[in-house]
Amino acid sequence: MKFLEKNSRVSNGFLAATILSIAGSIVIWNTTGANPAHVERLALFVGLWAPTFMGFANYYKE
């Protein structure tokens, strides 16, 4: 499985996913919906992906 080999391209992809997760969480948090509690929970859920993506980025770093 070539995807499991360590290289900087995969690491950079996970770093981009980290940034997108944080930005997405901020955008979701600031949107208004019919149920504000649901929007806040969704934003927190998306924001919690960032540490996982950062861990993968550190693992795949050469």
Rank of each mutant, 00 (worst) to 15 (best):
residue 1 M to H: 10
residue 1 M to C: 08
residue 1 M to G: 13
residue 1 M to E: 08
residue 2 K to H: 10
residue 2 K to T: 04
residue 3 F to K: 08
residue 3 F to E: 12
residue 4 L to G: 01
residue 4 L to R: 08
residue 4 L to N: 09
residue 5 E to F: 11
residue 5 E to D: 15
residue 6 K to Q: 15
residue 7 N to Q: 10
residue 7 N to F: 11
residue 8 S to D: 13
residue 9 R to Q: 14
residue 9 R to D: 07
residue 9 R to C: 02
residue 9 R to A: 04
residue 9 R to V: 10
residue 10 V to R: 08
residue 11 S to L: 07
residue 11 S to T: 02
residue 11 S to G: 07
residue 12 N to V: 00
residue 12 N to Q: 15
residue 12 N to Y: 08
residue 13 G to N: 14
residue 13 G to A: 09
residue 13 G to M: 13
residue 14 F to A: 09
residue 15 L to V: 04
residue 16 A to R: 13
residue 16 A to I: 09
residue 17 A to T: 01
residue 17 A to W: 01
residue 17 A to I: 01
residue 17 A to E: 02
residue 18 T to Q: 10
residue 19 I to F: 05
residue 19 I to A: 15
residue 20 L to H: 06
residue 21 S to W: 00
residue 21 S to F: 03
residue 24 G to Q: 02
residue 24 G to N: 13
residue 25 S to V: 05
residue 27 V to S: 10
residue 27 V to C: 07
residue 27 V to K: 06
residue 28 I to P: 00
residue 28 I to A: 15
residue 29 W to C: 05
residue 29 W to T: 06
residue 30 N to K: 06
residue 30 N to P: 01
residue 31 T to Y: 06
residue 31 T to V: 07
residue 31 T to H: 05
residue 32 T to H: 09
residue 32 T to R: 13
residue 33 G to D: 04
residue 34 A to Q: 10
residue 34 A to R: 12
residue 34 A to E: 14
residue 34 A to M: 07
residue 35 N to P: 00
residue 35 N to Y: 12
residue 35 N to M: 07
residue 36 P to K: 06
residue 36 P to W: 04
residue 36 P to G: 05
residue 36 P to D: 05
residue 37 A to P: 02
residue 38 H to F: 13
residue 38 H to R: 12
residue 39 V to G: 02
residue 39 V to N: 06
residue 40 E to L: 08
residue 41 R to K: 15
residue 41 R to L: 11
residue 41 R to T: 11
residue 41 R to G: 00
residue 41 R to P: 01
residue 42 L to M: 13
residue 42 L to A: 14
residue 42 L to W: 06
residue 42 L to Y: 05
residue 42 L to G: 01
residue 43 A to L: 03
residue 43 A to I: 03
residue 44 L to R: 15
residue 45 F to L: 10
residue 46 V to S: 04
residue 47 G to D: 03
residue 47 G to T: 08
residue 47 G to L: 05
residue 47 G to C: 09
residue 48 L to P: 00
residue 48 L to F: 14
residue 49 W to S: 04
residue 49 W to E: 10
residue 50 A to I: 07
residue 50 A to P: 06
residue 51 P to G: 08
residue 51 P to T: 09
residue 52 T to N: 05
residue 53 F to D: 02
residue 53 F to H: 12
residue 53 F to L: 07
residue 53 F to M: 04
residue 53 F to P: 00
residue 53 F to V: 02
residue 54 M to W: 14
residue 54 M to P: 02
residue 54 M to H: 03
residue 55 G to E: 06
residue 56 F to A: 13
residue 56 F to L: 15
residue 56 F to M: 12
residue 57 A to V: 03
residue 57 A to T: 01
residue 58 N to M: 14
residue 58 N to S: 12
residue 58 N to K: 14
residue 58 N to T: 12
residue 58 N to W: 11
residue 59 Y to L: 09
residue 59 Y to C: 02
residue 60 Y to G: 00
residue 60 Y to M: 11
residue 60 Y to Q: 02
residue 62 E to G: 12
residue 62 E to S: 09
residue 62 E to Q: 13
